[in-house]
Design a protein around this nucleic acid. Sequence first.
DNA 1: ACCTGAACACCGTTCAAGT
DNA 2: ACCTGAACACCGTTCAAGT
Lengths: 199, 199
Amino acid sequence: MNESTADRLVTAAAKLLEDGVDAVTLRAVAKLVGLSHNAPYKHFKDRSALLAAVAERDFLLLKNAFDHARRTSRSPLAALKTGIAAFIAYGREHPARYRLMFSDPELVSQGGAMEARAMEAFQAFGALVADCQATGSFPATDTKALTALIYSSLHGLIDLELGGRARESKGLGSIEAMSALLLELLSQNRILSGTRSLD
Amino acid sequence: MNESTADRLVTAAAKLLEDGVDAVTLRAVAKLVGLSHNAPYKHFKDRSALLAAVAERDFLLLKNAFDHARRTSRSPLAALKTGIAAFIAYGREHPARYRLMFSDPELVSQGGAMEARAMEAFQAFGALVADCQATGSFPATDTKALTALIYSSLHGLIDLELGGRARESKGLGSIEAMSALLLELLSQNRILSGTRSLD
DNA sequence: ACCTGAACACCGTTCAAGT
DNA sequence: ACCTGAACACCGTTCAAGT
């Protein structure tokens, strides 16, 4: 079973993305696959649709990394930490692809398959969090809310580092230290189980 | 004292940014100011430099919002909450300008004046956090680290909402609820003052 | 169904020239 | 010092045509 032309276009686009999103021109993608400069239009509606397909594939990779961490770790907390490490590593190794998935204005609310994969990745991460709650490592707050807080915070740390806004001078030297701090905060807190109002 | 041509170009670019970063073509900017399509080059090195100037101005606005919150609120915690609310409101009202400041790959590590303003905004936010620590509302951890954690988490929440990745279905419905949850976690935790190792 | 080549409108950037 | 107009290379997208 050979790779379809569409798949090869996505692979080529992902490869070019390593040089930044601007490097992904339809002409360059087509050339890399060995087709004429407008052949991509027979497989994708436009440039955005091709980029969405790359993000879709990457969300699946992320989901798989989370699932793998869950299956192979010896404790829920260890699994979560492995998942977080994979998330961070992904952002560092593929910054443009990471930004495409999470921060690209073109791909906003495109719905479709990419959105579905994005949600599956989020849910796989949520399973890691739920496991930590089940063993009492984390407070028994609403799982979705807790997952969302950790997931967003992690994204913020990664995104600021990618943008160069996280330098030692700002105290943002290590994402790892920051996320560990966050987990520590969560592990030691027991009050969230009850009602949730402060003000 | 009239606005300089450079200032008018920045203002025009900021205005066009409301329609997305792609709407900011040098030709459109020049036209809005009433100049020929390449007049901007006499004031800015290239398109990136003009966008950086917009971000620079916006970081100053953000810093001023933080400073204002600090001066006008009746308690450190109230000041921090006001600052956070301003941060969130800014992201929602000017998504493209927000993304330009924090997540634009073109403006990475450009150094220069924008980087300086970005740090001033971060430091102004840090003053709000430090005040909360001084009154015992927050643990006496390293202020920069604590500031960075809150700042990044907040950014992550805002960025994911702007990207449409924060829907009710994911439990990310309200940035306000999430940031309140984070502050609650911080307020109730006292252990961070001591040594910081978990694993 | 899938691909090609020509063409269009648009853009960032450079350059020679004007005042 | 600041601005203009022409020009270049490049890009997304469309269309008519081929197999």
